[in-house]
Structures are given as C-alpha cells and as structure tokens.
Design a protein around this nucleic acid. Structure first.
Lengths: 344, 344
DNA sequence: CTGTTAGCGCGTTCAC
DNA sequence: GTGAACGCGCTAACAG
C-alpha cells in the first residue's frame, strides 16, 4: 500500500537514487543507456515523485496564492478564469483566498505572504495598505497586483480613468448636461478598489473638459448591487429631476438604474440614458451601453507577469495598463432637446 | 534572512526540539512552566512551523482538490463560494482545477487523485466514468461528488428530478399542453452532468402524470448559452407554433428564450410562458419564473461532508439531497384559452 | 558519469 | 517530563 519511492526505482533499476533524481530533473550528465533503463523502470513502476518531499528539498513551495474578492462581482470571476488558465499550465499549484470581509482581508494579508507557504502572490482588486506593503516587501515574495495600483508593486491596472472619462464623454456627446453618477462606495472602503476612485475621477475629468461644474449631489454611492443601485437612482432622480443621464460604476448597478427608471415610468433611453461598466455577459441581452474591459485577458497578463517575476525578479515594479473601450448599445441616446453640432 | 525553525526556538528556550514540537501540537506531557517558556519564545521569535516540512513528516498533504467546471455557468460560482467558506475555516489548503474541456477533465481525473498530492477530493458537476471510479477507489482518497450522482461515492445531489417535474407541472397547472424544453446537451456530453438527465426526466414525468405524450420534437438541445438558447427557441417555435410554454434547462438559456420571443414579437407571458432553472441573481431583475436550488448551501454541505469523510471515512457512501423549489415570478401565466378548474 | 550522503524542517519514537 | 536520534522522500554536493 505504501507509495513507491525513488529508492524503489533505484533498487529495481540497479542504480543509485542520485541517478534517478538526475533523470527526473533532466540532468544531462547521465549516460543514454542508464537514462533509458531508469526511464523504463519508472514507467513500469508508475513512479511519480512525491511533490511534498520535492518541495521541502528544493526549498520552494511550488505554490501561488491568489487573494481576491472573487464572488462579489461577476467581473471578478472572468479575471480569475484568465489567471487559472495560465497557472494551470505552469508547475505551480494555486490556492485561492476569497475575501468578503475586512477581517478576512487582514487575515489573508497577514498570514498568506510567507516564503514557506508560497512562491508568488497575486492580489486582485485589493489595495495593500502601507503596513501591508511593508510586510510584503520584507517577506520578499514576488507579488503582482491586478486591478489595484500601488507604486511599490508589479501590477496590471485597468484604465479606469479613461473608462470613466469615456462613459461620461459619451453622454456629453449626446447632449446631456445633467449627468448623475451611481458609484461604488468612495470613502473608507475596507477594500479600497483602485477602480472606484479612477472611474470617479474620469467622470470629473470629462465634465471639466466640457466646462461643466462637478456637482457632488449628482454622485450617490452604494454597494455594487442591483437593489441598492435602484434605490439610489430613485433618490437621485427625485432630488434632481433635471438629470437626463446616469453613469453607473458597474453593469450590475446599471441594471438597478434601469429598474428604477421602469418603476418611475421613465423610458430608457428616451427619458433617461444609462451607461454601465464592465460589459458582463448579461449586458448584451439587456442592450446596455457600457464600458468594456478585457477581463479575462487582464487575468492572463497578471498571471504571466507573476510567473516572470518568480523566474526573474525585476528590480523596478512593472506596470501593465489594460485598455477600456466604449460599447454602444441601446440604453443611451441623444438628449431630446439637443441638436448635434453641425459637423455631424 | 533564513527562516527561523523549530531548532532556533528550542535553542533559545533552552529545551529540545521535541519539547517545542509537543507544545506546538498540544501534547499534554509538557510541564506548565516549560510550556509557558516555549510559548513565550515562539511569540518572541514570531515562529511559525514550516507547513511543507510538517506535511512531509505527518504524511498528510493538508490539501484538498476541487475539480469543477467553475466558470461555465453562474450557478457553479455560487456553489464554489459555499465550498470555499467551509474550507477556509479548516486546516486544509485547497487547490482548484477548472475543467472546460474533456481533455482537461481526463487530465484532472488522472493526475489529481493521488495520496501524495491531496487528502480529499471534491468533484463538482462531473460524473466519473467507471474507469475513473475504479482509479479513485484504488487511490483510496476520500471523495465527495457535488451535483453528480454515482453509487460508489459520497455525494450531494440536487433534486433535479423534482425540479424538472415542478417546472413542468407549474406550466401544466397553468393550462399549457404544448410545452417545449430547451435542454443542455443530453447525449455524449464529455461532462455528463447529472442534472441534464434528471431535469429532462422530471419534465417527462410531469407530462406522463398529466397524460400528455412526450414529444421528442419538443425537446431541443444546446449549450448553456443565451445565444444558443435563442436560436433553438426560434427553431422550436417555428417548427411547432402550437407551443405556448417553454421550460429551459437553465436561467441563462431562459434568457435566450425570452430574447427569441421578443424577436418573434411574442409577448412573455401573454403569448409564451417561460420558466428557467437555477435562480441566478439576474433572474429576479428579469422577473423570471424559475426553479430555485440552494446553490451556496449545497457547496457548504459537500465541503462539510468531505471534511467528515477525511476525519472518519464511512464504510458506505452517503447521499445528501438538496431541495429545489418553484419561484413564481412574471414570465409564466395562465394559458389564454384555459379556465382554471372550479376549485380555484 | 555515478553511488553515497548530508540536509530540507518537522513529528515521533525511545531511552533517560 | 524531556532530550536525542531517526525518518518522511527528495535534491544536491561530494567523492570516486
């Protein structure tokens, strides 16, 4: 019943364990004949090296940790899929740590980054505090951030500044001047998504460029949730009936916006233009105009970057920017009282 | 820079490594004073035992593998969340193997179930072939199936037979007699989801109970995908215009059904009743009548069952049945030409 | 080229 | 109650 070990192979092949190990690790200094014999014995015995013993001996864990709020938003799942596809091809196992609370986040940031646990760390959509950052540095573990910016770390960031700008600009181009923004929670979020601030800033930039003053009362914040989005929208439109267009931080919230519109007897897009963010699967069915990001691709990029860092740590943190683009569908339209500029 | 080991602790505390180990593992035969002193040194040095060395010494991997088609359907993600929540509390790491192709499935079923890799195996929505089953048995690894039935294994199965029945019965109760079924692919699927056959059987059972002949031409099969669902529905309704209600294998496909209805100028539910399956998040927004299953809960149950099996293997495979219920919303209604029985 | 041996860090005997 | 020594299975360094 006991598993078969390298020693069994050595004995049966009539060689030393060192030789078997060399064959296993493609060490060139083995004669073709011996190599052949060892290989045969290995397949006869169906021997496979014990991964744990291998790790202990190598002083490597062959393990990568992914810390992420996977399930809180559909978009995250797609990124994760990209990560998985790359790591599955590598020699690394990966263990995932799902973060849904601040306590869990702190726990993960404290306990996971240890050299005797992992060889590499991938953090998605969570920004390390300066304390965290320092500890990570000390642990000296190759780390990559995905959808989270921090100057000290390798990172793949989404061009949310541009995305927020694009969304707002699209509405402005359609003639809208009173544009609400349903945001994720901007301040003191225990998670501090990078994207929350960037999209908001992009919104502000587009307004500024158009010479329209930023109105804080046009910006309401709440969780990424349909029902929350719906209630916020009702409040936003009740307080500011002049609003003709709403930009939502996520498609999920945009669905809530449309829900509110329906319940307030506002037609979309005739009475209210709605634009979301992410381009999740359902958005196409709902004909939702939105900002698309390359979700899976960014996961792939982050995982590849991490593997590269493990093999050859770079001295200076690298940054990859993943693009965002406008996907125009049917929930945004020209402001009724607005004529397009002559040029068009 | 080198990590601190049990030996460092022993030296600093002026004891032997054996004693430190005993303290670590709550072995009672340590005097309170020595224990106290060791504990202090441990926290002074911020010592934490090396997990890999521990595994090698214990002969346990402290690792659980989850093999699943995670990302192919939204419902799977919720189950996975349940699994994660339980395993995160345990001492086990878990590594996930995402299966999106038959080749990947075979690879995982062949390579993953080895005692020197994992202590437990959780397989979601994939049915082992008899070859697989035999190999698993030989590997002698505690295994739990979730959403997949096999007499030889512990399992948490969804009551899909009842769910399929419930959905069809609901339509029958509303007076519908020509009920189409948009199924996942029934035959020769490389994945052989348990649920595919059960829901289909439930559909047949309800029809039989109502004395309505099963019509194979009312059953179309395709991937769980909105667009596929849409095209199948168009074909189904074009070929069989007498159909007044459609049961879809999944909410995702049900959305495709509604899409088709819209494009064919059929009102839902006035002209066509639609019922889905799963009750994913979006379904509430779409007012989709559907069959709900306790997705997250079933993941929790499966993970707990696996942990129990690891601690105390049962001689006979255990089966847990997770219930399904009808969630009535607004996409199903009374057949126009139909009057309810007097009693109601 | 190849066999032997010393660790990797921990748990667990086995004497004391 | 406690320390020393052995072994988990493998890699790598060292002789030969």
């Amino acid at each position: 019943m006991a598993s078969i070990t390298i020693r069994d192979v050595a004995k049966k092949a009539g060689v030393g364990v060192g030789t078997v190990s060399r064959v296993l690790n493609n060490n060139p200094s083995v004669s073709p004949e011996t190599r052949q014999k060892v290989l045969e014995t290995i397949s006869e015995l169906e021997y496979q090296p014990n991964p744990i013993a291998r790790r202990l001996s190598l002083g490597k864990t062959l393990t990568i940790a992914v810390i992420a709020p996977f399930f809180t938003r559909p978009a995250f799942v797609q990124r994760f899929r990209g990560i998985e596809s790359v790591l599955a091809e590598s020699e690394y196992d990966f263990v995932m740590y799902n973060v849904e609370t601040a306590a869990r986040r702190d726990f993960c940031f404290r306990e996971v980054p240890r050299r005797d646990r992992i060889d590499g760390l991938l953090i998605m959509s969570l920004i390390p505090t300066s304390n965290d950052a320092q500890r990570f540095q000390e642990a000296n573990i190759p780390t990559v951030l995905l959808d989270a910016a921090h100057p000290d770390f390798n990172r793949v960031i989404i061009d949310d500044l541009h995305g927020g700008y694009l969304a707002t600009k699209h509405l402005l181009d359609l003639g809208h001047r009173h544009i609400g923004y349903i945001s994720d929670i901007l301040a003191k979020s225990p998670f501090n998504y990078h994207s929350i601030f960037e999209r908001h800033q992009g919104y502000q930039n587009a307004l500024a460029e158009a010479g329209i003053p930023y109105r804080p009362d046009y910006v309401l914040q709440g969780e990424v949730d349909q029902n929350v989005g719906r209630e916020l929208t009702k409040q936003l439109l009740a307080d500011n009936p002049e609003i003709t267009a709403v930009f939502a931080y996520s498609d999920t919230q945009a669905i809530g916006v449309m829900q509110a519109a329906r319940e307030m007897n506002l037609r979309v897009p005739e009475d209210l233009s709605v634009i979301g963010y992410d381009d999740i699967e359902i958005s196409e069915y709902l004909h939702l105009t939105t900002i698309q990001q390359k979700l899976m691709q960014s996961g792939v990029q982050a995982a590849k970057l991490l593997l590269a860092e493990i093999n050859q740590p770079s001295t200076h943190p690298r940054e990859i920017i993943s693009p965002t683009t406008l996907v125009r569908r049917q929930t945004t339209s020209l402001l009724k009282t607005y004529s397009l500029p002559e040029t068009n």
